[in-house]
Design a binder for these strands. Structure first.
Length: 320
RNA sequence: GCUGGGGUAGCUCAGCUGGUAGAGCACGGCCCUGAAAAGGCCGGUGUCGGCAGUUCAACUCUGCCCCCCAGCA
């Protein structure tokens, strides 16, 4: 049983297309999305509602509370379970979502190693604030030259992770990573150089393509729709709970853009504008990821009909 | 109409005792191995409001004109 995968950035129309395909294939949808796993984050994430869920069964939505932390590896575990369940019932798993890193974790796997140690990270971050991220970079270069060469001196996030692995395991991050790369392809070749060379599941992948201008128009529309559906209230709830919510929801496009508004520094219109720009940027980075994925392109003109597109997809790329 | 402030990148603005310009954001490209809608790197962009004058050289000085904002009429 091959996984069907629909790749597309925010506002590309992939959810709608996935739903049409699911109905025609008697498939079930597995969401690949770092934000939709949270309960109560519905409007800003454009999460499937009751109607959509009645039309096709959805997985990997509403897995946890906004206070909880979640990582790519947790997603891979949840998706593995969902896929096994779907296949056991003789249905087709149809994956759709915009979080590239989660696809990597699910299809390629992550290296064996420790998870996040939040207090340790906080400590390292405090040091970076005091002495600058270059101090962490110097330390990394001394302890793990290969990782030091690969990670930019200002990429605090990755510096912290690399030092975290060393401190927790006594082994280098670069050593552990090549271990995995060798598992996927020939020794020495990096996993990034040959994405999905030895995937954990067989799959067929489609990448939805739209013109940028079309995408920007759809994003503006999408934001207007969200505003009409209670985006302000949802964002206000996230803002009020910022002390207890985990970091992920606080970083979501659709909430953080309103923080200046809630602080009284900006008006509503300016916040919506900020959200538009944030969404544009998100789509850009999603596309950068997806362009490297082994997917067949599927161009959607601005006036594409989801039903027709789905039929074409099923007769074409998704026909196995 | 008068007085003052201002017209420089798509936007907000900085700049120059004269040597044809920058920053943030936007926009575009890229990197990514347990917080990824995060984090990081790189990039182009301009008839410097118009016309004339001074000058080897004007975005910068001078004159006139146009436009915007505030106050006074």
């Amino acid at each position: 049983m091959k996984l069907r995968i629909i790749l597309g950035g925010t506002a590309s129309g992939k959810e709608r297309l996935a739903l049409e395909c699911a109905q025609r294939l008697d498939a079930e949808i597995v969401s690949v999305d770092s934000m939709k796993v949270y309960r109560g984050l519905d409007v800003a994430t454009a999460k499937a509602g009751p109607e959509e869920r009645a039309a096709a069964r959805h997985h990997c939505l509403d897995l946890l509370e906004p206070e909880e932390t979640f990582a790519a590896t947790d997603f891979a575990r949840a998706a593995d379970a969902a896929i096994a369940d779907i296949v056991a019932r003789g249905k087709i798993p149809l994956l759709s979502g915009g979080t590239a890193f989660y696809y990597k974790a699910l299809l390629e796997g992550l290296f064996e190693g420790p998870g996040a140690d939040l207090p340790l990270r906080a400590e390292l971050e405090a040091r970076a604030r005091k002495d600058g991220p270059e101090a962490l970079h110097r330390e990394l270069c001394a302890k793990d030259p290969a990782a030091g060469a690969k990670i930019h001196p200002s990429d605090l996030r990755r510096l912290v992770r690399a030092l975290e692995v060393i401190s927790l395991t006594g082994q280098t991050l670069s050593g552990r990573q090549t271990q995995w790369a060798g598992f996927h392809s020939e020794a020495g070749a990096s996993a990034a150089a040959a994405p999905f060379a030895a995937p954990r599941y067989p799959f067929v992948m489609v990448r939805l393509v739209r013109e940028r201008a079309d995408l920007h128009r759809r994003i503006a529309e999408r934001i207007r729709r969200m505003a009409a559906r209670g985006l302000r209230e949802e964002a206000a709830r996230v803002w009020e709970n910022r002390a207890t919510y985990s970091r992920t929801p606080l970083q979501a496009v659709g909430y953080k853009e309103f923080f200046p508004y809630f602080r009284g520094e900006e008006n509503w219109e300016a916040a919506l504008e900020r959200l538009r720009h944030g969404t544009n940027r998100l789509v850009r980075s999603q596309e950068t990821w997806f362009r490297k994925f082994p997917a067949e392109e599927f161009f959607l003109p601005p006036d594409a009909e989801p039903a027709e597109a789905a039929a074409k997809l099923i007769d074409g790329i998704f026909k196995i």
